[in-house]
Amino acid sequence: MPHVIKHGLLVADDWTLVTSAPANPARVILPLADWQARPDHPAVWLAPDETPDALLPHLDRLALVAIHFPVFTDGRGYSLARLLRQRHGYRGELRAFGDVLRDQLYFLHACGFDAFSLRADQPPAEAVDALADYRWQPLGQR
């Protein structure tokens, strides 16, 4: 089973990220276009050029919002995270995925992310250890 860093710990990832909706979408993170056809689904992912506007009436029941980083130099996901957390008050899991490097984790967390799915060549256990390089506080304790 793949792993994800969540709240500063390495945990088994029981969600599956999909690029199009499967017939049975249990425990999958749907892309925004597919989620809009099923807005009762608890998990959605946004591309960096999408806005969270469609999610706003549903934020209180979304368990997970994931934001895609197609390349590590694309910073739009940081802005999306800030909008969701600070302006819109989203309190569920906010996950960064894609071209996510261990060196970005502190800064991603500072913008509101509390879970990270690293790029395949980034050892998650080493990334968790790297979090100790900075003062790490769970999101609700800042």
Score class of each variant (00 low, 15 high):
Ala54Glu: 12
Leu139Ile: 07
Arg82Leu: 11
Asp53Thr: 15
Leu9Gly: 03
Gln141Asp: 15
Ala21Tyr: 04
Pro52Asp: 07
Glu126Ile: 01
Ser20Pro: 00
Glu93Ala: 12
Ala47Asp: 13
Ala23Cys: 01
Ala63Phe: 01
Leu62Cys: 08
Tyr134Gln: 10
Val44Met: 09
Ile67Cys: 03
Pro123Asn: 08
His68Ile: 00
Arg102Asp: 15
Leu83Arg: 05
Asp60Arg: 13
Tyr78Pro: 00
Ala21Pro: 03
Cys111Phe: 00
His7Trp: 13
Asp34Gln: 07
Leu10Val: 05
Ala43Arg: 04
Asp34Gly: 12
Asn24His: 14
Gly89Glu: 04
Arg76Asp: 08
Ala26Thr: 12
Arg85Cys: 08
Asn24Gln: 14
Leu80Met: 11
Trp136Leu: 13
Val44Thr: 09
Asp13Arg: 12
Asp99Gly: 07
Ala26Tyr: 04
Gly98Gln: 03
Asp14Ala: 11
Gly98Ile: 01
Ala96Asn: 03
Val28Arg: 07
His68Met: 00
Arg135Val: 14
His41Thr: 08
Ala125Tyr: 02
Trp136Tyr: 15
Gly98Val: 03
Ala47Ser: 14
Ala47Ile: 00
Val71Asn: 12
Val100Lys: 02
Gly112Asp: 00
Pro138Phe: 01
Pro42Ala: 09
His58Leu: 07
Gln137Leu: 15
Trp136Ile: 08
Thr51Ser: 15
Val71Ser: 13
His68Phe: 11
Gly8Asp: 11
Leu17Ser: 09
Pro22Glu: 12
Pro48Cys: 12
Ser20Leu: 08
Leu17Thr: 15
Asp129Lys: 15
Ala12Leu: 14
His68Trp: 14
Gln137Cys: 09
Val11Trp: 02
Val65Gln: 04
Thr16Met: 10
Phe72Ala: 07
Cys111Thr: 10
Arg76Glu: 06
Ala66Phe: 09
Asp34Lys: 08
Phe72Val: 03
Leu56Gln: 02
Val65Asp: 03
Ala127Gln: 09
Arg87Pro: 00
Asp121Gln: 14
Ile29Ala: 11
Asp103Asn: 12
Leu105Arg: 08
Leu131Ser: 12
Leu62Ala: 07
Ala115Leu: 06
Pro124Cys: 10
Val28Cys: 15
Pro70Ile: 05
Leu62Arg: 04
Tyr134Thr: 07
Arg91Lys: 14
Lys6Ile: 02
Glu93Lys: 02
Glu50Met: 07
Trp136Pro: 06
Tyr78Gly: 01
Leu9Met: 11
Asp133Phe: 12
Glu126Thr: 10
Ala43Thr: 04
Thr16Gly: 04
His68Glu: 13
Ala54His: 03
Gln122Lys: 05
Phe107Val: 05
Ala130His: 14
Gln122Ser: 03
His58Arg: 13
Pro31Leu: 11
Asp114Pro: 05
Ala110Met: 10
Gly92Asp: 02
Val4Glu: 10
Arg135His: 14
Leu139Phe: 12
Leu94Ser: 04
Thr16Tyr: 01
Gly140Leu: 09
Asp53Arg: 13
Leu94Gln: 02
Leu59Asn: 06
Thr16Ile: 11
Pro138His: 12
Phe69Thr: 03
Ala66His: 06
Ala115Phe: 08
Leu9Pro: 00
Trp15Glu: 05
Asp34Phe: 11
